[in-house]
Design a protein around this nucleic acid. Structure first.
Lengths: 132, 132, 132, 132
DNA sequence: GTGGTCTAGACCACA
DNA sequence: GTGGTCTAGACCACC
């Protein structure tokens, strides 16, 4: 079952964090069409937030065409996302491993979380500017 | 002079984005104690937002002990952040280059911005869980 | 419920007066962790000021770690302030009574509010210099 | 020569602090008609503030009829304040001593500056309400 | 309904 | 001109 989490202190509204997490999971293939999201009640209890906040996130997912609620059954991921080929999956795994290596390297160099974030967001921004 | 920018669509309130950018710049050594931030008016005009929004960001920086406004003079970075040694700087540059290489690799593998973000935030999260 | 008031004419910005009052109340034990402050709207209406001014005060209290706003619920005093012992409370009451006696004495000697203030601030200042 | 000082952190605008100090000194008899205030330049240098701020305070004192600048000579306290009788002076000294005793008592009871302030302002406020 | 962000514009304090 | 306070009112996020 998909697990939500909160990155507190980022300033992103809680309901949007939930939306983003589903979006990312779908992109990575961790969530696929037909998968069932945890119920509103479950999420609300687990994250200790108001059920309305979860509802708003699920409504937004519906709005974005990523999930669809079925009365009495739950909320399900929709939309066809072409399955990844084996070689695609392998390449992702490699990339993932590469990033993990980079992070380990950064930690070993004595950088704390804040510094890593700073480098990440700066480099990311520059990269997007260049490849725009 | 320090340049602000907006990462629109993230859901982070504009004033917080400004705060985060200064925080990151200070961490990376791009801003140092005594440096003057652009005036409230300049930022407001450049980003086409209300001066009060910029003021709010500067006030937040004050609260966080990162900057201090002086009426009639401007807003200045405050607090001693020990200068980085040459070797530290070199290590950062290496890390930066490594991350850029990773990004180039990811692009070459056909990942779009959304997918890269997805991998980044997932791996980052897992990494923090592990090293916690 | 905590009651705010204005000491007009002091030159202290209204929002700061609110902050100071909460700080003092917390110090005196009149407000304790978990206590709920009146809502922004209530204070604004009672003191006939703009809600944003109250909000600014509450935000400042947040920054100082004295209170925390919870959307939809209100603003609450935060932070553990060890409860005063019975004997402590008694000593405070004595001190308070002593000060009241002094004030009565001063009034009887024909001093007006301004003169009392003058003596108070002067003696206070000297006292701090000495015990510094 | 009269000495100005700053109580930082009170939120009272610097120029008003200067005004208040002269007012109090006049009330207490520490400054009397004809006494010369330090020059704008002296005050500005001593307190490390802009001369314009001192000028504004002196202008305000003029406005309130407490002091008058004489071109090329300086700023002088004006206004007849009937001299205090010997017995009046004695009574003030007694009051002052009484307050000092109270403060010593408070310190001995373990109260810090903030707590003393809290009691003072609370009792003062209540006292004014009662004798209003 | 409760806190919080943003805008718009007036006014003040400081240099 | 530069930071800062206050007002007024719209809109958002959370309960």
């Amino acid at each position: 079952m998909f697990e939500f989490r909160f990155e507190s202190g980022s300033g992103v509204p809680p309901y949007l964090q939930l939306v983003h997490q589903v979006e990312r999971a779908v992109r990575l293939g961790a969530l696929r069409a037909g998968d069932r999201l945890p119920t509103v009640k479950e999420v609300a209890e687990r994250l200790v937030i108001n059920p309305n906040t979860v509802l708003k996130a699920y409504r937004e997912l519906d709005h974005r065409g990523l999930a669809k609620g079925r009365a009495g059954q739950g909320t399900f991921i929709v939309g066809e996302r072409r399955a990844m080929t084996k070689s695609d999956q392998a390449r992702r795994a490699e990339l993932r491993a590469g990033l993990e290596a980079w992070l380990t390297e950064a930690r070993r160099a004595g950088l704390d979380t804040g510094e890593i974030d700073a480098i990440l967001s700066t480099v990311l921004h520059d990269f997007r500017e260049e490849t725009k």
